[in-house]
Amino acid sequence: MRLTCPLCGDRDRREFYYSGSEDTLTRPAPDAGDAAWDDMLYLRTNPAGVTKDLWYHESGCGSWLVVTRNTVTHEILATERVADRKGAPK
């Protein structure tokens, strides 16, 4: 599998570290309670089809990427830097 880093270009998947679903970027409020934090930390889905995942470009520029991919066909649909998303801290 090959991923396209917005800064480094087309790269082999082995340069990246998979870190799970993109939804981990949305955390519960600090006072949300134990159940909300437990759900965020331990309950994972495993959908067939299009997903958005977090990948870290470990052997490259060090960027965190959101990779949109199809888990059935293995097609990479899009990549974007987390830092470039609207509302991301500068």
Score class of each variant (00 low, 15 high):
M1P: 06
M1D: 10
M1I: 05
R2Y: 14
L3G: 07
L3W: 11
L3I: 15
T4H: 10
T4S: 11
C5L: 10
P6Q: 09
G9V: 12
G9K: 11
D10W: 05
R11T: 11
R11I: 10
R11V: 10
R11D: 15
D12Q: 14
R13G: 15
R14Q: 13
R14S: 15
E15G: 06
F16L: 07
F16T: 03
F16Q: 05
Y17V: 12
Y18G: 14
S19P: 01
S19W: 05
G20Y: 09
S21L: 00
S21C: 03
E22Q: 12
E22R: 14
E22L: 08
D23S: 11
T24E: 02
T24D: 01
L25R: 06
L25W: 00
R27G: 06
R27V: 13
P28D: 04
P28A: 02
P28Y: 07
P28G: 03
A29M: 06
A29S: 08
A29E: 10
A29F: 06
D31L: 07
D31S: 12
A32W: 08
A32L: 08
A32K: 10
A32V: 07
G33W: 08
D34H: 08
D34V: 09
D34E: 12
D34N: 04
A35Y: 07
A36N: 01
W37I: 02
D38K: 11
D38I: 09
D39M: 14
D39Q: 13
D39G: 07
M40A: 13
M40S: 07
L41T: 06
L41Y: 11
L41C: 13
L41A: 13
Y42E: 04
Y42H: 15
L43F: 07
L43D: 08
L43S: 05
R44G: 04
R44P: 00
T45A: 09
N46F: 15
P47E: 11
P47M: 12
P47K: 08
A48S: 14
A48T: 08
A48V: 09
A48C: 06
V50R: 09
T51N: 01
K52T: 01
L54N: 00
W55R: 01
W55L: 03
W55A: 01
Y56H: 14
E58W: 13
E58C: 05
S59G: 03
G60S: 02
G60N: 00
C61D: 11
G62R: 03
G62T: 06
G62H: 11
S63K: 02
W64K: 02
W64F: 07
V66D: 02
V66F: 02
V67F: 02
T68M: 04
T68E: 09
R69Q: 14
N70T: 02
T73V: 08
T73E: 05
H74P: 00
E75F: 10
E75Y: 10
L77Q: 05
T79K: 04
T79R: 03
E80T: 09
E80Y: 07
V82A: 06
V82Y: 06
A83S: 14
A83I: 09
R85Y: 01
K86H: 11
K86M: 10
G87P: 05
A88M: 13
A88W: 14
A88G: 13
A88H: 13
K90Y: 10
K90D: 15
K90R: 14
K90L: 14
